[in-house]
Write a protein that binds this DNA or RNA. Sequence first.
DNA 1: GTTTAAATAATAATCATTATAAATTAGTTA
DNA 2: TAACTAATTTATAATGATTATTATTTAAAC
Lengths: 129, 129
Amino acid sequence: MLREKGFKVTPQRLAICRFVLSSKEHPSVEKIYDKIQKVYPTISLATIYQTLHLLTKIGLLQEFALCNGSLRYDSNISPHLNLICKNCGKIIDYESEKINMFLSEIAKELELSLVGQHLELYVYCNQCK
Amino acid sequence: MLREKGFKVTPQRLAICRFVLSSKEHPSVEKIYDKIQKVYPTISLATIYQTLHLLTKIGLLQEFALCNGSLRYDSNISPHLNLICKNCGKIIDYESEKINMFLSEIAKELELSLVGQHLELYVYCNQCK
DNA sequence: GTTTAAATAATAATCATTATAAATTAGTTA
DNA sequence: TAACTAATTTATAATGATTATTATTTAAAC
């Protein structure tokens, strides 16, 4: 996909893709940097930021911020709920046909076309409740 | 509500409440600071931050961050959709009985109790589309 | 009016992100 | 395979938002 859109395929970008696109934990930039450094010790933080923004721009990632402002990256770009534990902060995705139905009903009601969504539900997870 | 919970009622807090609780535009800290300064020129930015966090803690406000990380304050604490224009950034609230129904169905499905939600739909608004 | 703990203001410190510029490299072409 | 070039990376400086600190002020209780 990078090559298709005219961007170069570098080992740094591959390493970041490998980790982030397979991650289900909505990692922060810091987490991503730590992880990539183990594989690629000389990588610069600027490259991490740049690459994450690029992957977001070409639609491979979704960028969002928790209510404390911390940036997170979600490799699940299909409509889903982010269940966020108020206590431990863990985020679990939840997909269901109900969500797609709800969104398309709403879009019809609004007479607007949706170009994206980010849905956060705050809960106490099974460990914390 | 401040007094009930043992916090002092100061003119600074009143000024911030007056503006933020009646605002429908999900203002940023900067916007709030600018607005309050006109009424209360000596107010400090630290007081703004502190008060907003306090009002959030006691449940009068909801704090969230746009995907670029900018903090916003929402005085509408009942379940609603935030329709965010991808182009101009304007946020419009949308309330509907469908949303409450959807959320309670989901909560039943998950066997978890929801303690809050923040729902963002990205669109192009009527001016921008 | 006094008292006292809480709140404010001013400013310094911190942290995350972006900008800059020199060095490196992927991908193209000869 | 070597040379070329524009894109990318790295290191670091700059920026901007938020939080911490501390002296001063003040709301609320007595």
